[in-house]
Amino acid sequence: MFDGVVAYYLTGYTNWWLIAILLLIGFWGIVTQQNLLKKVMALNVMQVAVILFFLNAGQKAGTTLGVLRASEKVGDVSAYVNPLPHALMLTAIVVALAITGVALALLLRVYRSYGTLEEPEVFRRMQQQ
């Protein structure tokens, strides 16, 4: 019963809707939040949504990881998930990590320079100098 429900959600459209909502949450956060740290967090949410999109595209019901079984022939691709999106997303995760690292370093410098991370306040203090 439980397996059936999981399989239904994993193979149906529900996943795609959830990913789309996650992407829009990230985008909404970047546009509306005034705190620069929250903007960076929203950016991460958006990147995670894109990563999940790729991973979801690589899924197939009733298959296993892309590691060759002793009993299987090489040519039998129907037994495996598509491993390429996983490989791509490893790279994309590293890229997202690097972006977060640079963003946090910049946030730290901004905070030390202006004493705040609220964007309007940062601009106000920039004007004063």
Binding site: F27, I30, L36, K39, V40, L43, M46, Q47, I99, V102, A103, L106, L107, R109, V110, S113, Y114, V122, F123, M126
Partner: peptide, 14 residues
Amino acid sequence: SLVAALRYLIIGSV
């Protein structure tokens, strides 16, 4: 330039 770079980073990453 710190603030400019951070804003560029967010927009560019989007």
